[in-house]
Simulated assay, not measured.
Amino acid sequence: MPDTEGKTVSLTVPAEAEFARSVRMLAANLAVVCGLSIDDVEDVRMAAEEGFVFSSSTDQDEVQVLFTIDEAKIQIQFSLGESAEVGDFEDGDFDYAKLILDSVTDEAVVDEEQGVLTVVKTMGGAA
């Protein structure tokens, strides 16, 4: 397996629904690179799409996506626009996105101060 310790990949895409597939496919490819199982790769694919959809709805023209990978984990950070608040994510405005992210990742957190949504998937985590 290639050395993937602490590698990062960044992507900037328009905050438009038709670009969700690009984010999803890159996330899946990177999950394969870091050695996740087929089931985990599918979870990453779903998490990437839901994270992108959530971040696209937060009043921004472009979404910055930062992937950080190592041999058994992928972390994806999505930029959030100024309208994003933790309450939106945790208190019901995005129930479906939160439900999906909580079920397919080990961590899904909105950081208002940093303006990012971070999702993490580790090998064999979040069944």
Rank of each mutant, 00 (worst) to 15 (best):
E90G: 02
L66D: 15
Q75C: 02
A27D: 05
G115S: 08
P2Y: 09
D39Q: 08
E62M: 13
I74Y: 06
A72S: 15
T118P: 08
D70F: 01
L117G: 09
V23C: 07
Q64I: 03
E18A: 04
D70V: 01
T4W: 03
R24D: 03
G35K: 11
K73H: 08
Q64Y: 11
V44Q: 10
G87H: 07
V86K: 15
A127M: 05
E16K: 04
T105M: 02
L80P: 08
S57Y: 02
E18D: 10
S37Y: 11
L117K: 08
R21W: 01
L36E: 10
I69K: 12
L36I: 11
I38E: 15
M46W: 06
D91Q: 14
L117P: 07
A48Q: 00
D91W: 12
V53F: 04
E85N: 10
A97R: 09
T122V: 14
A126T: 03
S57N: 15
G81E: 07
E5Y: 12
T68Q: 15
G6T: 00
S56L: 05
S103V: 03
A97P: 04
S37D: 12
D88G: 14
Q114D: 15
P14C: 01
V63H: 08
I69R: 13
F19P: 01
Q75M: 10
A48V: 07
V44C: 09
A127V: 13
E85W: 06
D91N: 15
M123T: 03
A17S: 08
V65L: 06
A72G: 15
E107P: 00
V65A: 08
E71N: 15
E113K: 15
L117V: 12
S79H: 07
E18I: 00
K98E: 12
Q60R: 12
D88E: 07
P2T: 07
V23L: 02
S56I: 06
V119H: 02
T118D: 02
F67N: 11
A97L: 04
V33N: 05
Q77P: 01
T8P: 02
A126L: 01
D95Q: 12
R21A: 09
G92P: 10
M46F: 03
L99N: 13
F19E: 03
E82N: 13
S22K: 14
V53C: 02
L26I: 13
V116G: 10
V116Q: 11
G115V: 11
G124Q: 00
L117C: 09
A84W: 12
L99C: 00
S37N: 04
A17N: 05
L80R: 10
E82H: 11
V86M: 10
I69P: 13
Y96E: 07
V119F: 02
G124P: 01
V116I: 15
E71K: 12
E107A: 08
S10V: 10
D102Y: 06
G51A: 01
S57A: 09
